[in-house]
Write a protein that binds this DNA or RNA. Structure first.
Lengths: 208, 208
DNA sequence: CGTGACAGTGCACACATGTTCACTCTCGTA
DNA sequence: TACGAGAGTGAACATGTGTGCACTGTCACG
């Protein structure tokens, strides 16, 4: 017995989460049956209840986990410093590519459940994205050149950038790691955010 | 009997489509059962097969229909002329708001099934969006001021614009018609596309 | 007028699902 | 060392599901 009681429980909990993640791939959370995941994990259906009261709660746990990796992405992005804007952008997109490649399952889950998931799941994801927008806005406010900007315009700009990131992530999900397609998506994303930043640089907030 | 045989069949076909659209709202296509829609329509389950060979095909028909309304949006957008760029943008966003408001069910369906739907459905939607990007790119090419642009850069720019439109549509889906929230989303979208176009105006394609 | 195509019915079946309950066995603790 | 908590079992249930089959009635057409 090299495993403690708690470790063993945690291990099957993880197995359940992984099974759910893998099974819901190519479909949706709502099309996931308790018995299916139980069979995949290798436990009897009723044992599922020892870990989650329902599939819905399993979904919420999965969202929580996925949002964690999303937050990790943001943290990583924040540390992507550089000399000029161009290198910052290039680095950020690289980080995005890396993360999506690495946590493919989680990002796929978020993409799928963002609109198709149950209400609680949808709201949690929406909150996560909003948070990203707000954080980016405050980050932008501390950058030089944004002194003439309205708070609201900064908010709108970050929404635009985050939106571009989301769409890029969604596109990346459809490509395989290291493929030319992935490279193309990444390059295009870099170009897009550059365009977008050229726009920002020449922007002039109208005083309200 | 004021209804012909064919009209009657078409009517229950429509009823099935509408029922599926309404029932899949708040969930997903994959979580839709044949018996459920049959009960909603008021026919016996097996009668469903007179109209569709399976739920999956029902889904494809719904996608087709939804993509039709998407194409209608594009057509409408194309006719939104104006003096300067600003009025074109304002008009286009207004059209988007109007259309999403009017065909809420279809756009919601697209948003939900874009990633959570079965493979065939996902691909059909992806093709529809790509088509929109290509069409916008050729439209942009005929505009003055884009002579120095690379074909590829034009393509990337339209992907960016279409992406912003998609995200705006998704945001609009969460607001109720005529609400202040809807107004806010629309206004922000106008600002975003303006920013984006300022970027485009100052863009300089690197010769490859 | 008759007849056949065919939308819709009703029953049947085999199967999957969520949840219940009483149970076993084993680790951690008192 | 004794025991209790609790992860996992296995049988049972009511219910929902897709689909097959024989059927009925009625509109359209020869």
């Amino acid at each position: 017995m090299t495993e403690s009681r708690g470790e063993r429980k945690e291990r099957t909990r993880r197995a359940i989460l992984d099974a759910a993640l893998s099974l819901s791939e190519g479909s949706a959370l709502v099309a996931l049956s308790l018995r299916q995941v139980a069979k995949e994990v290798g436990i009897v259906p009723t044992a599922f209840y020892r870990h989650f009261p329902s599939i819905e709660d399993l979904g919420l746990a999965l969202v929580e986990e996925s949002l964690d990796t999303l937050r990790a992405l943001l943290r990583e992005l924040r540390h992507t410093a550089g000399e000029d804007a161009a290198t910052i952008i290039d680095g950020s997109v690289s980080v995005l590519v890396e993360q999506v490649r690495q946590d493919h399952a989680h990002y796929g889950f978020i993409a799928r459940e963002r609109f198709a998931g149950p209400a609680g799941v949808r709201e949690a994801i929406a909150r996560g994205i909003e948070l990203a927008e707000r954080e980016l806005a405050t980050d932008l406010a501390h950058l030089p050149g944004t002194d003439t900007w309205t708070d609201h315009d900064l908010q709108v700009l970050s929404a635009l950038i985050v939106g571009a990131m989301v769409i890029t992530a969604e596109r990346l999900l459809g490509t395989s790691p290291g493929s030319p397609a992935e490279q193309r998506v990444a390059d295009d994303a870099r170009t897009q955010i550059r365009m977008l930043l050229v726009g920002a640089r020449n922007w002039q907030s109208r005083t309200p």
